[in-house]
Design a protein around this nucleic acid. Sequence first.
DNA 1: CGGGTAAGGGTCAAGGTGACATGATCCTCG
DNA 2: CGAGGATCATGTCACCTTGACCCTTACCCG
Lengths: 245, 245
Amino acid sequence: MPAGYDIREFPAFAVTVDIVILSVVDGVLLVLLIERKDKPFKKAWALPGGFKRPDETLDQAARRELREETGVDAPRHISQFGAYGDPKRDPRGNVVTVGYLAVTPEVGAIMAGTDASDARLWPVAQVLDGSVTLAFDHRRILADAVERAAADLESSALATAFLGPTFTLSELQRVYEAVWADDLDTANFRRSLVSSPDASYVEPTGRRAEPGGRGGRPPELFAAGGSWTEDGSPVKRPRRRGRAR
Amino acid sequence: MPAGYDIREFPAFAVTVDIVILSVVDGVLLVLLIERKDKPFKKAWALPGGFKRPDETLDQAARRELREETGVDAPRHISQFGAYGDPKRDPRGNVVTVGYLAVTPEVGAIMAGTDASDARLWPVAQVLDGSVTLAFDHRRILADAVERAAADLESSALATAFLGPTFTLSELQRVYEAVWADDLDTANFRRSLVSSPDASYVEPTGRRAEPGGRGGRPPELFAAGGSWTEDGSPVKRPRRRGRAR
DNA sequence: CGGGTAAGGGTCAAGGTGACATGATCCTCG
DNA sequence: CGAGGATCATGTCACCTTGACCCTTACCCG
């Protein structure tokens, strides 16, 4: 039998998918974590995920695990961002995992429906700075996912995936500010989305949001337009010459 | 024994790495392909690659396969861009592969050193339009790699990885034009790299390249500067409102 | 020496960006 | 019911970047 033909001659790995589900609530970037029930890393916080099955693609595995572990059936965004195969990343050995980034506006509401005791949203900043410890190499995976999300905000319609079908411009701005950990000028932000005559990033609905309780003029509600896919996001990430905020 | 503990209960996969080695020669974007010696897809062209070993990371596997199959020891750039796990992607079944993009300026010279009979550079355009047929799902993988390379040209120093330690500005411009399949204005290209007072993308060496044989002023030789990593590439991809070239 | 070729440098107008000021609308509270 | 605060919405202006184009410089070749 020629070399390379029989696949059984080669080392076998378990393949998993791990899902980074991001959300922005009150201007804070959050990630959905679950508390592990089994060894290893029992009772530690971890990214939701699970084993790929032989009869499904990686994308299908990611969507299945997302549905099974969080109840999210149709995420507004899901995309692969990296694969991890360090031999020491799982004490059980030989586990290669593929990371997926998922975004959906209703994470908070959906979580209330599932068993909330072993799953909750954590501020990403707390996890990345070590205040919350994650199992396996999930902190590294989370960091990569956030980095990818920050980059995709600038080149796709990812920001709108954090919000519902209609949203206010300040809600959209808070998404950018939370993911980029930077402040944007309100007036310039509005101009970049509304001004252009031929491009349509947001379409006015004519309706207004409910007043926010803290006073202030009720903002107009917009829906996502069609220009995102062609030209990417009109909002540019500030290139600070010195320090960020 | 608790569920999820024993890894052997779960389906086993073979894990491979496939490497897309790109090069620009005479303004044409090329990819290194090898001719398969074994079934399946015997005698078809394919991306170099091979099986990950249990004691190495994915990155290490990619570098090892790159070295073993092409002789490239220290590529100027190598990065992961995607994982592929369609159950039908390999007729032997259950093979998950991780794609790597590699760029090195000396591909042509290195190829002469290896057994040239079963490895050669092909124009990417010919492969993507179907003139050359690839094994497995390697055409899809190649397309993803080229797309990633085009994006990374704009946000990193990837362009300089196609060239040696010193290069002329027109050589650098041809890299951008080949990967983007678009023409750039020579004067504006130069300005974006040279003009800025505080940033240093290219540093003049004072030396000049050998005359090119077809007449013309011999160009100045530059070395890559340090501003690429901070601010990304100063060259912006043309956003054509209609068709490309 | 003269023409061909490519590098290198300059100009100009149009549009985008950052910073900031001003006006509009609604809430809460006294 | 009016004042003040909060937020949304609009306007202005200087500066920078970008795209398009022209012209000069330097070298090779016949």
